[in-house]
């Protein structure tokens, strides 16, 4: 099942290029905010809403997809927990880097067709895209073991962990949490439609040029281990998002006027724009300095990381 938010944050079911309105039928749900609506559906999906949604879709008149304005499927998740440096860099690393992660501001989320705004007040050395598999939590997970991890996953979504480099001190808050730095969508795909989350191709294009093109099989700490570790620290709740990390081979600058598209097998295509009122310019294409550094081919960090 593919769930969407659209127009004034109506919850919908996406099917065959059409959207079926769910919010108008799910009046029993107490949802002061759009995120409360999707959280309620996620929490009781297996027991109630999978069947309810199918029933509703059999009754309501669908709207053609091109007539709706898509919104992020998780408009404001309770938490975004992101993994840091969690890929083998296309097999270049012998073993995964030590587990690390960070919290990203849930305020950063934007959806299909929206715009990443590079903050004018922050003089970053460069802004990067980071295409990632977004994992949506379905059941509360506190200190769960790896073998139970998939039981706690509701679904998957394209996620772009937009990053500002070279701000000092180079903390994750300053690097990752700017408003609009969390593009997500176009829809949220339930886990039953993803046969093997550990074997998905992730692609990202900037202005039509492919930049990132990697498989989730290259992940350092695999999904079960990741969920085990994160849930040993923070309690993960329904509707929370895990950004599972990026392969740095293929990262590149984003700048004013860019169009960023990303696609993960089965998760649709997410397109967002980039705006920078300062019109800062960087070279176009892949940043090999960060790619070589993270992959261990170069001991020389990028200039912005040298402070």
């Amino acid at each position: 099942m593919k769930l969407v938010m659209y127009n004034d944050f109506q919850l919908g079911l996406y099917q065959d290029n059409q959207v079926f309105n769910l919010s108008e039928s799910l009046t029993e749900i107490n949802a002061p905010t759009p995120q409360d609506m999707i959280n309620a559906v996620i929490t009781d999906f297996d027991s109630t809403y999978r069947a309810r949604i199918q029933e509703i879709a059999g009754k309501v008149q669908p709207i053609p997809m091109d007539q709706v304005h898509l919104r992020p499927p998780l408009p404001r998740p309770g938490k975004i927990v992101a993994m840091a440096a969690n890929y083998m860099e296309s097999g270049a690393l012998k073993e995964p880097k030590p587990l690390n992660g960070f919290l990203k501001s849930p305020e950063s989320v934007i959806g299909e067709g929206a715009t990443v705004v590079l903050p004018a007040g922050h003089q970053a050395a460069v802004f990067h895209h980071e295409a990632e598999l977004g994992i949506v939590i379905g059941k509360t997970a506190a200190s769960i073991s790896a073998d139970k991890a998939y039981d706690h996953i509701f679904g998957y979504v394209n996620f772009n962990d937009v990053s500002a480099r070279g701000l000092h001190p180079n903390s994750f808050l300053w690097m990752k949490s700017h408003d609009t730095f969390g593009p997500m969508g176009p829809y949220l795909v339930t886990a039953d439609e993803v046969a093997d989350a550990q074997n998905l191709q992730i692609r990202l294009w900037v202005n039509g040029d492919i930049r990132q093109d990697y498989n989730t099989s290259d992940m350092g700490h695999k999904i079960p281990k990741m969920v085990e570790w994160l849930s040993s620290i923070v309690q993960l709740d329904p509707g929370d998002l895990i950004a599972s990390g990026t392969n740095h081979q293929g990262l590149g600058p984003i700048q004013n006027g860019d169009v960023i598209e990303m696609e993960i097998t089965g998760l649709g295509r997410l397109t967002v724009n980039v705006k920078d009122e300062l019109n800062r310019e960087w070279h176009r294409g892949v940043d090999s300095d960060i790619a070589d550094w993270v992959a261990g081919r170069s001991s020389e960090p990028p200039a912005w990381a040298k402070r």
Binding site: V81, A84, K97, P98, L99, N100, G101, F102, L103, A142, N170, S171, F172, L173, I233, V234, Q235
Partner: peptide
């Protein structure tokens, strides 16, 4: 906790 030299505020601060 966490890798030396990295931002480890997640492990350092966010336990339940």
């Amino acid at each position: 906790l966490g890798p030396k030299g990295a931002d480890v505020f997640l492990q350092g601060k966010s336990y339940h």
